[in-house]
Amino acid sequence: MTLNVLVNNLSLTYGSYPALKDVSFMLNEPKIYGLLGRNGAGKTSLLSILASYQEQTSGAITIGGEIPFENAKIMQDVSFIFSKDYKDESDNVKEALKYVARYRSQFDLKYAEYLVGKFKLPLKKPIKEFSKGMQSALNVTIGLASRSPITIFDEAYLGMDAPTRDIFYRELLEDQSNHPRIIILSTHLVSEMDYLFDEVIILHKGSIVLQEDFESLITKGSSITGAAEVVDEFVLSMKQLNTQQLGNTKSVMVYGELNDRDRKVAQQKGLEVGPISLQDLFIHLTEGDD
C-alpha cells in the first residue's frame, strides 16, 4: 500500500523566525526521495511535521488523504529515523528491537537481526555504551526493518564510518526494491548518496527550490569549457551557475538542457561539454547572499 504525501503551503515559524515558508510538494510513488538543504534550511523541521513530532503554523499536510497529526492510523505508518540521544538507554539491541516490533505492525524481526549481524552490533551490550556510529547503525536497522510505508532518514548516517555507510546504502536499495515504499533521505553528503535518489527535493532557507526526477535533473546542467571568449559567447543567453577561469581557459556551469544544435555548435567551436554533478547543482542553487 502506498500512502501519498501532499504538502500544501506549509509554513512553520519559531517565534518570529520563519523555519519553513509556503512549502508545497507531493510524493506519490514508492521511491527514494533525496531531501537536500544546507544547515538550517528547514529539513528537520519539515520532516518532523511529516512525522507528527510537531504541527505546522499554517498550511496543510495530508498523508493518504488524512491529517497525520495525532492520527493513530497514519502515525503507525510513518517512521522518523534521526540521530537519537541514547545516553540513558540501558536496554540492549535485542530488547530495543522487541520493543519497536510491538508498535510497528510491519516490523520484520528476522531482517532486523540480519542487519544487526551486518553492522556487527553487540546484542547484549547496553545501547548507551555504543559509539555514535553504532547507535546510528541501530537507528538505521530499526528504520529499515520497520518497513513503514513512509520511512524518513534524517541524516541517519551520523558517526558511521565509510564501510558502514556503504552497508546502509546497499541495504536501503535492496530492501526498497523488495518492499517498495516512500523513503525520504535528508542529507549533506550529496556526492556520496546521489545515486540512491529517484527524485530530489532541494530546500533552501525554508523554501523549496526544486523538486525533480534525478535523471532529468542532472541532464539539466552542463559544464562548458574552452577558450574564455568563445565560452562567454556560447553561454551568453544561458543561466550561468558558476564560472571558473585559469589563464585563458574558462569553465562555466550552466543550468538548462542543451539541445542537439547547441551541442553541435559547441563541438564546432572546440568547446568541451561535460556533465555536472548533483553536488555542483546543489551548491550553486543554494549559495548566495549569506
Partner: peptide, 16 residues
C-alpha cells in the same frame, strides 16, 4: 521527559 518522546517515535499518539 523520557517516555512520551519514546512512544511518539514509535508512532504512538500523544492521546494513546
Amino acid at each position: 521527559y523520557g517516555l512520551l518522546p519514546h512512544y511518539v517515535s514509535n508512532g504512538v499518539t500523544r492521546k494513546d
